[in-house]
C-alpha cells in the first residue's frame, strides 16, 4: 500500500468534523445523564427511617450507637438538624461543636453520610417531628444464632456470598485472620461488635449497611439473613482475638524482594545482550 498524502482541504474537513463530534458529545453527555432516571425520589419519612436510621437510632427506645431521637426536632435547631442529616461528614470535618460532642458520645463512630437528598431529609424531619405514639425501634424478632466458623469463611471468601458480593476481607481487616490480614480500604472491624452495640446494633447495621460506601457496593447484592447471622457471630468471636501485625511494611518488603528477583532474572535471561555482532566486529577491527 502506498502512502497518499491527504489534501489540506480534506484534512481541514476532518478536523472540523472531529471538533463538531467532540462538541456534540460534550453537550449530549450531560443531557443523557439528566434523562437517566434519578435516584429514589423523596420517600415517606418513616420508610426512610426504617431503611437508613434504625441501625443506630430508636425513637423512644433508648440510645444505641447513636442517641435516641425522641424529641430531637425540639432539642436541635431546624437548620442545624437538616444540615447534619444531609452531610454529617462535612460538619464533623468543620469541627462543629455539637457534632464533635455527638462523636464522643457514640464511642467515636461518626454519623455516616447517608447520601440523602434534601427532600428526603425534609421527609425524615417531618417524621421525626411526629413519629406517632409508639416507640420506633429495630424489629424485635429474636436474633438467630449464627455459625461463627461459617461467618469466618464468608469473611475471608472461602465460602462465597450468595448474592455475589465481595468477601468482607477484600476491604476490611479483623483480628485473627493471620498472615497479611484483610484489606485496608475500609475500617478495621475487630472492635465493630462492641462499637455497634453488640448483637442488636450489629444486626441492624448488617441488615441495612447504611453508609455511602457500603451502599455503593451492597445495594444491588445484599447479604442474606443467614449470612448476616453468621458474620455477626464471627465478628463477636473476633472481637476477643489478637490483632494481626501491621502489614504495610511486610508487603513493601515482599514487593522489594520480588523486584530484585525479577531484575536478576532479566539479567540472567539477557546477559549476552551487550555482546552484539557490531561490538565483536569493532573489537576485531581494533586488533
Amino acid at each position: 500500500m502506498t502512502y497518499q498524502p491527504v489534501h489540506p482541504a480534506a484534512r481541514r474537513r476532518w478536523i472540523w468534523a472531529l471538533l463538531a463530534g467532540v462538541m456534540a458529545l460534550a453537550l449530549a453527555a450531560p443531557a443523557l445523564l439528566l434523562a437517566a432516571p434519578l435516584e429514589q425520589s423523596a420517600g415517606e419519612g418513616e420508610t426512610l427511617f426504617q431503611q437508613k436510621c434504625v441501625a443506630c437510632h430508636t425513637i423512644g427506645g433508648g440510645a444505641l450507637v447513636g442517641p435516641d431521637l425522641a424529641g430531637v426536632v425540639d432539642r436541635r435547631d431546624g437548620a442545624w438538624l437538616s444540615q447534619w442529616i444531609l452531610a454529617p461528614d462535612k460538619m464533623l470535618a468543620a469541627n462543629d461543636p455539637i457534632a464533635t460532642q455527638l462523636l464522643q458520645e457514640s464511642k467515636g463512630v461518626p454519623m455516616p453520610n447517608l447520601a440523602l437528598t434534601e427532600p428526603e431529609v425534609a421527609a425524615l424531619i417531618a417524621f421525626l417531628a411526629n413519629p406517632g405514639a409508639e416507640a420506633v425501634t429495630q424489629p424485635q424478632a429474636p436474633l438467630a444464632e449464627g455459625d461463627a466458623a461459617h461467618g469466618r469463611a464468608l469473611f475471608t471468601g472461602a465460602s462465597r456470598l450468595e448474592n455475589g458480593g465481595p468477601p468482607c476481607m477484600t476491604c476490611h481487616s479483623i483480628a485473627g485472620l493471620g498472615a497479611l490480614g484483610g484489606g485496608a480500604l475500609g475500617v478495621d472491624l475487630t472492635k465493630a461488635y462492641e462499637t455497634y452495640g453488640g448483637d442488636a446494633g450489629l444486626a441492624a447495621f448488617l441488615n441495612t449497611l447504611p453508609t455511602v460506601t457500603m451502599n455503593a457496593v451492597w445495594s444491588s447484592q445484599p447479604l442474606t439473613p443467614a449470612e448476616q447471622d453468621d458474620l455477626r457471630a464471627f465478628m463477636q468471636e473476633a472481637s476477643f482475638a489478637e490483632r494481626p501485625p501491621q502489614t504495610v511494611w511486610l508487603l513493601a518488603l515482599l514487593a522489594t524482594v520480588g523486584v530484585a528477583l525479577l531484575l536478576l532474572l532479566a539479567q540472567l535471561i539477557w546477559r549476552r545482550r551487550l555482546v552484539s555482532v557490531r561490538k565483536t566486529m569493532v573489537q576485531r577491527a581494533r586488533i
Binding site: A158, R160, G164, P166, L251, A255, G258, V259
Partner: peptide
C-alpha cells in the same frame, strides 16, 4: 466472577497481591 473465585482463597489472594505489587514497583523503577 472468575476473578472473584480466583481471589476467594486467602493464599491465592496474597500471592497475587504480592506479585502485583512487585510488578508495580518494577514498572515505577
Amino acid at each position: 466472577t472468575l476473578w472473584g473465585n480466583l481471589l476467594s482463597d486467602r493464599i491465592r489472594l496474597y500471592v497475587l497481591e504480592v506479585t502485583g505489587l512487585a510488578l508495580a514497583l518494577m514498572t515505577v523503577i
